[in-house]
């Protein structure tokens, strides 16, 4: 059980990097970017092929997975901003094409990395602690990503990007090229998703065509869980950095819940239904609650 939970924590941290990517598009740009299912698998596939078939250094393979994800984000952005295709549809189009592209890249539906060095095996050799390596290395990556995002969104370009997600009319009136800021956001987001895909591939020692399926739902579920946890925490963590951390923590909690319900005997195939239910409930509860409040505040006589 402990081993299963430790595995869930390490998975949660690595997927947490993807959640940071989803956070950029969903919370800051106000777009549900469905590219991420495809770009996660793309990051993993590119990484696996480079390591197994080209003998590339696993650290460089991570970088390649990140760049591949960024390119996928750029494609969605061009479909959306240049050709005015609605963001959701643009993401779906890229995601669907990536399924075929990923199969082309790998030449088959999965690639095992069993006999190859990964960044995790390299560090394990040095430390001698296989179980904790993924957690520690994952935390290092997640911390760097949170720090980098915190810095970036405080800069002039980062502020312009937040303004774009908030109010496009105002942004253009303030001289912000909203096409450029959207491009940066989608590339940054999918770059993080690609990096997560490459990290997940190296930690689980295989890349699979289906590894990204449902990634967007996991991302949204983790963000929602993180927000709820943030609200329950005393002092109500409102600052931007704590919201980023909450997204990663939300991801860890998501994978812990998953590990626990699987241990309790739930069919692994039902997990997607549970994830969708978590997101749907989390989005529905505030709406229903507010409606209820409005109804409760109605007074027939009119005195408030």
């Amino acid at each position: 059980m402990t081993l299963a939970l430790l595995g869930a924590v390490s998975q949660g941290i690595l997927w947490g990097i993807m959640v940071l990517g989803v956070y950029i598009t969903y919370k800051l740009l106000d777009i549900a970017d469905l590219t991420c299912d495809g770009s996660l698998a793309l990051g993993g596939c590119v990484c696996a092929v480079l390591i197994v078939e080209h003998g590339i250094n696993p650290w460089l393979a991570l970088l390649a997975g990140t760049v591949a994800g960024m390119l996928a984000g750029a494609v969605t952005d061009v479909l959306h901003t240049v050709f005015d295709i609605p963001a959701i549809l643009a993401g779906i189009l890229t995601q669907i094409s990536l399924w075929s592209i990923n199969l082309r890249i790998m030449g088959k539906s999965n690639i095992p990395l069993l006999k190859h060095e990964t960044i995790f095996s390299e560090i394990t050799v040095a430390s001698g602690l296989p179980q904790t390596t993924v957690v520690v290395l994952g935390l290092v990556f997640a911390t760097i990503c949170v720090g980098a995002l915190y810095w970036f969104f405080g800069t002039e370009i980062g502020s312009a990007l937040r303004a774009t997600g908030n109010n496009e009319d105002m942004s253009r009136a303030m001289g912000i090229d909203t096409r450029a800021t959207k491009m940066i956001a989608l590339m940054l987001s999918n770059g993080l998703v690609g990096l997560a895909g490459a990290l997940i591939c190296q930690s689980q020692k295989y890349a699979d065509i289906g590894m990204g399926t449902g990634a967007i739902i996991i991302g949204l579920a983790a963000i929602v869980i993180g927000e709820v946890l943030g609200r329950l925490t005393p002092g109500k963590l409102r600052s931007f950095s704590s919201r980023l951390v909450a997204a990663v923590v939300g991801s860890v909690v998501y994978f812990l819940i998953r590990a626990i319900v699987l241990q309790m005997g739930m069919d692994a195939n039902d997990m997607k239904l549970l994830s969708a239910a978590i997101v749907a409930i989390a989005l529905a509860v505030p709406v229903v609650w507010e409606r209820q409040q409005l109804r409760a505040s109605y007074r027939k006589g009119g005195e408030a």
Partner: peptide, 11 residues
């Protein structure tokens, strides 16, 4: 910063 180029300086 209207009309000025935006950089990676602090916002």
């Amino acid at each position: 910063r209207r009309g000025k180029s935006r950089t990676l300086r602090w916002g």
